[in-house]
Write a protein that binds this DNA or RNA. Structure first.
Length: 418
RNA sequence: GCGUCGGUGGCAGAGUGGUCAAUUGCAGGAGACUGUAAAUCUCCCGGAUUUAUCCUACGCAGGUUCAAAUCCUGCCCGGCGCA
């Protein structure tokens, strides 16, 4: 019997960890490196499935376990026949475990912290070194200014929707992901804040390893799921190279179909960090860089051996008026292994675009880029028309999906056979 | 014509003797956004300028006062009512 998620490397690039390959799933193949479109609540914000297949051209989407669990509830998705039929996503899909929400609703809640640390980050001393155990209450969460609290066994969330309390454990997350039915599911982990001190990062990482083991066991207990869904484990360790190394080793020893690389990074060390991790992770399994996907980051990730990337940036910045465009120049990767197109972002709401009748991006071959002008999209944004964010989202997604595809082609053209 | 209410920054609309270059919303200018608490958030928004400060401003013109967007007089303009 074939594994539900099977990875095939087609070419390695000499001198780097970059590789081109294919991830085979029951709902189709994913040619890697590939960008994964994010549809957290089973919806790529403002896009219907046909927008994805006809105008974006992505191969795979990612939904979120925590969000779908709260709304509409995984039972409804299961009864609807799984996420593919429920959302009309006729392509490979992934679900994230909810581990990111431990960060976004926990340590990062109300603090404006992102998983990317720029430069030196002051440690947030309010982060407890020892996990808060038991005795959780809504009031406690409010006192801590967060909507979730972590303990050894799992995480207790206060719903950001209605304040109701919910409990996630490794087993629970896997059970929900089985019900949702994505092709690739992810072990429950804790995404830590870049402001958390070393001691906490280490503790959280070790706990994530324990959850990873439990996730594997929970997955193996479900024979139906085992036949149709692949399970990824998540490497943690934050900004610390020794922890990253330790985490990669620990996860490599477990029986996963692929790996996610999660947690927080410092912008400067992203490449170095990935190099260490991917130098350890087994070469015959796919590696997904969780939540990172600005063009330059993807170049870094591909060079250092990552195969897939998801990121909310294209849709989120698109919705708020930032448009990816090519500059027309080419850039060379740091080690000179291949050339790639230089990109930049423009703010389409800027005054100067109101009378700019040129195409949204004449150098991009996307449908939106080639059929709508900057002046028109600028008008849509100014007029508050929903079509503005919609077109911007389609364009940015097509742009980044295609940008990643170009990197794949570079590898195929320039590289040696494996 | 008489009576009455009102005329505030691009617009709407607070303020009704000093704490007012004037609350707030919209419009406008710019920025942010990386496993989506996000069709969101932040900053700027009379002029000159380095914070300070100075200048010009609350229909127009005078006046009262140490001090007026705020009080008084006249004028201009608008709504409503009565002729």
């Amino acid at each position: 019997m074939d594994l539900p998620v099977r990875f095939e490397v087609i070419k390695h690039q000499s001198g780097t960890l970059a590789r081109a390959g294919v991830i085979h799933t029951i709902h189709g193949d994913i040619e890697t490196p590939a960008f994964v479109v994010v549809g957290t609540k089973g919806s790529v914000k403002s896009l219907m499935s046909e927008d994805l297949t006809q105008y974006v051209g992505n191969q795979v989407t990612l939904a979120n376990t925590y969000h779908l669990f709260l709304q509409p509830g995984h039972k409804i998705i299961k009864d609807a026949g799984g996420i593919h039929s429920f959302a009309n996503w006729n392509m490979p899909t992934m679900t994230d475990s909810g581990g990111f929400q431990v960060f976004s609703l926990g340590a990062a809640f109300g603090k404006g912290v992102t998983k990317f640390a720029k430069g030196d980050v002051e440690s947030d001393t309010s982060v407890p070194v020892k996990s808060e155990l038991n005795l959780y209450s809504k009031k406690q969460a409010e006192d801590h200014g967060k909507l979730c609290i972590v303990d050894e066994d799992g995480v207790t969330f206060t719903s950001h929707i209605d304040g109701s309390m919910h409990r996630f454990t490794a087993e629970r997350s896997i059970e929900i992901q089985h019900a949702i039915g994505a092709d690739i599911i992810v072990a429950f982990d804790e995404c830590t804040s870049p402001t958390a001190p070393y001691e906490y990062q280490k503790e959280a990482m070790e706990r994530t390893h324990r959850w990873a083991k439990r996730s594997v066991l929970a997955h193996k207990r479900n024979f139906e799921a085992l036949r149709t869904q692949g399970l990824y484990g998540v490497v943690q360790g934050g900004r610390y190279m020794d922890l990253r190394e330790e985490s990669a080793k620990a996860l490599s020893a477990m029986d996963f179909d692929g790996f996610g690389i999660g947690g927080s990074f410092s912008k400067e060390d992203l490449g170095e960090s990935l190099k260490i991790v991917n130098g350890i992770l087994p070469g015959d399994k796919p590696r997904h860089l969780l939540g990172i996907g600005e063009p330059e980051d993807i170049v870094q990730g591909v060079l250092q051996g990552c195969d897939t990337f998801d990121c909310v940036a294209p849709t989120r910045i698109g919705r708020t008026g930032s448009i990816y465009v090519y500059t027309g120049l080419t850039k060379e990767t740091p080690c000179g292994t291949f050339m790639y197109p230089e990109t930049k972002k423009i703010n389409i709401r800027n005054e100067k675009f109101t009378t700019d009748y040129s195409l949204l991006d004449s150098l991009s071959d996307g449908y939106v880029a080639q059929h709508y002008t900057k002046a028109y999209v600028a008008h849509l944004f100014r007029a508050g028309e929903i079509l503005g964010p919609h077109l911007a989202s389609i364009h940015n997604l097509h742009f980044i999906v295609n940008f990643t595809k170009k990197l794949r082609e570079s590898i195929l053209v320039n590289s040696t056979f494996t």
